[in-house]
Design a binder for these strands. Structure first.
Length: 474
RNA sequence: GGUCUCAUCGUCUAACGGUUAGGACACCAGGUUUUCAUCCUGGCAAUCGGAGUUCGAUUCUCCGUGAGAUCACCA
């Protein structure tokens, strides 16, 4: 097994959406598949105090945990390279910045922000790219910490291999004198993530596509610092389903935790995210988390962006619900039952749950598909009118079918099998098609859009309830 | 504008240079002598365009076209 130290390094600027979570998932899968030789680090990059949102760290941790992503090292867990919160590591960055100053690879930026802005405007007006290094001061002042500290870059073309994208290259114009330490004393992402990855011994850096054009800067900095470059893997975007833009909070990307509240299973979400841009080359669609860990590989990750298709997630969720044992399903369903259902107790809830398990797409379907087992449903006759077949029946026909049904069921033993026999006999005596007669019975006892097999539904409801509901309808 | 990336059914994707271009979601039609959003069967539907290399190109090369990213004292 190869040694893998991978990390997820979000900034605490709000909730997590599917794009960010997928990056974390892939990184985690890589570490877990290395077995005991794999470590997954959660590092929080809080160097932009302006954009920071309170509570984000907790939310990030909750999101990862919900998905089943557990980290080995992090701010709450500690680890050999603690602290894992960048704002607590400022001395480390200062140290490395000093090394760059000493080796002549960093200098104080003497300009005001307005002056730099003027340079940028000028370049724009002249239709040429803006490069700070064109304005590199001849005799920069000694850096006292109040000015930004800039990297003295060594522009040159680069060719490198990305574990996902393959061979990549850029010209020298991609490299400029970027800021290492801001005037507020905090390092920039560009600088501190490189330092941290190196001293934390990170072997695999996974990140999303927008970083591809900054990679040459990073390569240049690795060289200046004398660090070995880790394996770089660029993940394609997750796109909004109806847009051509990457999925972002502005385009309706949801907090990943909301999916849990909406009745999605974390393993379905993991399956969905993993197969959004990755597949194992076979026709397998449903993967358990264990299978994902076993089979995931960076070289089968797609190069092109994938759209976020909620329909597919819904389908996968139904598939994963079916995979659950009844006890497991029950344990996860607790938040979704109606009050009446909870009053009925665990035994009865499980009886009903077993009946409906195959039909659930989300746990949030539980009330709509089970409430009539616990509470008297309000008749919705429009459901009869909206049913193509039932709409044709006259009021008299409906009445006579229901009366016949009541009579027949009153004589039934009311286990699933005898109800089945009773219903079959009923078809013969009424001469009606099952699609019509059974639809009618189903609606009258449940008034629900969908329900389990009729004989089982009736049996679980019990004779008295069924007769009462038929009477009520009559 | 500079730099860079990507491109197979509507969507997610498969295909050592040789397949009737496969699967899944969605959709449509049947079936399950019982409803239904389950399940089964079937159907619809794709290699962005043009050159080149080759006996043969979805696959390799080039040129277009389209889409996207980036060019911050944000990450």
């Amino acid at each position: 097994m190869t040694i893998v130290r991978s990390r997820f390094a979000p900034s605490p600027t709000g909730f997590m959406h599917v794009g960010g979570v997928r990056t974390a998932l892939f990184s985690w899968l890589l570490a877990r598949q290395a077995g005991t030789d794999g470590t997954f680090i959660l590092r929080i990059e809080d160097t932009d105090k302006v954009r920071e949102v309170e509570g984000s760290i907790q939310q990030i941790e909750n999101s990862l945990r919900w998905l089943g992503i557990e980290w080995d090292e992090g701010i709450d867990k500690g680890g050999p390279d603690a602290p894992y919160l960048q704002s607590e590591r400022l001395v480390i960055y200062k140290e490395w910045a000093q090394k760059l100053i000493d080796s002549g690879r960093a200098y104080a930026d003497p300009y005001t922000q307005e002056e730099v802005e003027a340079f940028r405007e000028q370049a724009k007006a002249e239709k040429r790219p803006f490069l700070f290094r064109d304005h590199r001061p001849e005799n920069p002042p000694v850096w006292d910490g109040s000015q930004p500290l800039r990297f003295k870059s060594d522009p040159k073309p680069y060719k490198w291999t990305d574990a996902v994208m393959g061979e990549l290259s850029t010209g020298p114009d991609a490299i400029d004198d970027f800021v290492l330490i801001k005037s507020d004393g905090f390092p920039t992402y560009n600088f501190c993530h490189i330092v941290d990855d190196a001293i934390m011994g990170v072997t695999h850096v996974l990140r999303s596509q927008e970083f591809i054009s900054s990679t040459p800067k990073f390569l240049n900095l690795y060289e200046a610092l004398g660090f070995e470059k880790p394996t770089l893997a660029t993940l394609p975007y997750v796109m909004a389903i109806d847009g051509k833009k990457k999925l972002g909070k502005r385009d309706g990307a949801k907090d990943i935790l909301l999916y849990g509240a909406e009745g999605y299973l974390p393993e379905a979400m993991a399956n969905f995210l993993a197969t959004l841009g990755w597949n194992d080359g076979t026709e397998q669609e449903i993967f358990t988390v264990a299978e994902l860990i076993e089979k995931f590989s960076l070289d089968r990750v797609q190069k092109s962006p994938a759209r976020f298709d909620e329909q597919r997630l819904l389908w996968l969720n139904g598939q994963h619900i079916r995979l659950l044992s009844l006890d497991d399903l029950y344990a996860r369903s607790l938040d979704f039952w109606s009050e009446k259902a909870k009053e009925a107790g665990e035994e009865r809830q499980k009886l009903v749950l077993a009946l409906v398990q195959d039909r659930l797409k989300t746990l949030a379907d539980i009330p709509t598909i089970t409430d009539y087992f616990f509470d008297e449903p309000a008749p919705k006759w429009e459901m009869v009118a909206e049913n193509k077949q039932l709409a044709k029946l006259s009021k008299e026909e409906i009445t006579s079918y229901l009366e016949a049904t009541r009579t027949a069921l009153e004589a039934s033993e009311f286990d699933a099998e005898s109800i089945q026999n009773t219903l079959n006999t009923l078809l013969e005596t009424t001469g009606q098609k099952p699609g019509i007669l059974f639809s009618l019975i189903r609606l009258v006892v449940s008034w629900a859009p969908f329900s389990p097999a009729l004989n089982e539904t009736l049996s679980v409801l019990g004779k008295q309830t069924v007769i009462d509901r038929i009477n009520r309808a009559l």
